[in-house]
């Protein structure tokens, strides 16, 4: 595949990497596994990229591949991920207004999502991302009715975890 395509892919992914980080943070519980899963999702996205025709939104396509990787394809490996630049957001935030409550709430939310099963994790993320039931059903490969039923169950489970 051409270098030009690779550069275009790297640029688009760099701008939208937040989506993958949200999936990684939900499906892993440590930095090494997070980076490992991120790399695997990147590889799967790259394999699929030449076939992406834009018939769905780029973010929707990324979520689909990311969930498929996290749920079905990913095997933990021992590789180490080298990066050219990693920065710690918290250090930057020292000098800005830092909302400890929101950060704590987010941490609790991610911990709660992590304790769900693989399918429920996907449902929780798609709910928080405000995806329609039609999109959720399409991504998971189930009917809209089933998507609603499963979503309600997941939301109840999530509430119970957050309010023990």
């Amino acid at each position: 595949m051409s270098q030009e395509l690779e550069k275009k892919f790297a640029s688009e992914l760099e701008k939208n990497q937040g989506i993958i980080h949200k999936v990684c943070r939900s499906y892993t519980n440590n930095e090494t596994a997070h980076k490992d899963l991120f790399q695997e999702i990147t590889i799967q996205l790259w394999k699929a990229y030449p076939k992406f025709r834009g018939d769905s939104k780029f973010s929707t396509w990324m979520y689909r591949v990311a969930f498929n990787t996290a749920i079905s394809l990913y095997r933990k490996s021992k590789r180490s991920i080298e990066t050219t630049q990693i920065y710690d957001n918290l250090k930057e935030l020292e000098f800005q207004d830092y909302d400890d409550t929101k950060d704590q709430q987010l941490k609790l939310l991610y911990n709660a999502i992590y304790s769900l099963n693989d399918i429920e994790k996907a449902l929780a993320l798609l709910y928080l991302e405000d995806k329609s039931y039609k999109e959720i059903a399409g991504m998971l490969g189930i009917s809209e009715v089933n998507a609603r039923v499963k979503m309600n169950r997941t939301k109840t489970k999530l509430k119970n975890i957050l309010n023990p």
Binding site: A10, S11, H21, Y74, R79, I81, Y87
Partner: peptide, 25 residues
Amino acid sequence: DQSESTIKFTESDIYNMVHQRSSSI
């Protein structure tokens, strides 16, 4: 409102990743 991930990759990192070995099942 969540801020960006504490882990962040550059274009160069992503460019290197696509040439790595997949650990897919």
